[in-house]
């Protein structure tokens, strides 16, 4: 194992984050605060409780999930796309570094950043609502699993992308709608029955549901199924990345 290389890639990517700390941290804090003002106060004041939980608190896991998914995908996609764009990827590809090591470096850094943002949002939320976390260890485990899985997904997007527009395309056009329609701001039990069935095809439903369970010990779908759903996405992403490096698709000519 080339641990020096894993650490080098990880540190290099983290340093990029800390160089733009304002943009990396302040931006999600501001947008989360706005969500609380709009959804928690303006709209939430008309909704008393959901499943017996104050609406302001109910949306916290969904908000965290929204930001973590966006950050995981964007950070990982940009992390690998940028060296492709400027040409410095040659250095990683010509170094004695294996596929798992490259993935650990880039995905590890992207997941760490997303996890940091998730925790910052949790801290921000605590200023607006009274939060009780039923299963803190499970919450942390869900956060890590989600950040790693979607950083892997972002890594694939970064390799696939040929321009910056494509890097932003999936987070904007796929992730955001999936999260909004995945029960981030409501329980899917509030939907008409037919739409509940449709919602079950949205993988984010399982993430939000499982994550919400770690906060309030209640969920739309059983926690075990949520874990299986994340596991399936994780394995699928790993399989795609392995295939990419084996064939050299978009990386090696």
């Amino acid at each position: 194992m080339n641990w020096h290389a894993v650490a080098a890639i990880y540190r290099f990517e983290m340093a990029r984050t800390f160089r733009s700390i304002g943009q990396s941290v302040i931006s999600p804090v501001v947008s989360t605060s706005l969500y609380f003002v709009v959804f928690g106060t303006a709209i939430g004041s008309r909704i008393d409780t959901v499943e017996g939980i104050a609406y302001g608190a109910f949306i916290v896991p969904g908000l965290m999930m929204l930001q973590m998914l966006m950050q995981s995908v964007s950070n990982a996609a940009l992390g690998i796309y940028f060296p492709k764009f400027v040409g410095t990827i040659y250095e990683v590809l010509s170094a004695p570094v294996s596929v798992p090591e490259i993935v650990m470096g880039y995905v590890g850094a992207a997941a760490t950043k997303a996890l940091m943002i998730g925790l910052i949002i949790l801290g921000t939320a605590s200023f607006f609502v009274d939060l009780q976390i039923a299963h803190p260890v499970a919450m942390l485990a869900f956060m890590i699993l989600t950040c790693v899985t979607f950083s892997l997904f972002g890594f694939i997007i970064g390799i696939w992308a040929d321009n910056f527009e494509q890097v932003n395309l999936i987070p904007m056009l796929v992730i955001t709608p999936l999260v909004f329609l995945g029960g981030a701001f409501y329980s899917i039990s509030m939907l008409p029955e037919a739409w509940q069935t449709v919602a079950l095809f949205n993988p984010v439903v399982y993430l939000v549901s499982g994550f919400r369970w770690s906060f309030f010990a209640m969920s739309d779908v059983p926690v075990g199924i949520s874990l299986v759903a994340i596991g399936v996405v994780l394995v699928a992403c790993l399989a795609v990345i392995t295939a990419i490096f084996r064939t050299g698709w978009k990386l090696r000519t």
Partner: peptide, 9 residues
């Protein structure tokens, strides 16, 4: 950074 990528301390 380049040195570390090549596994050197």
């Amino acid at each position: 950074h380049s040195r570390r990528l090549f596994g050197k301390g």
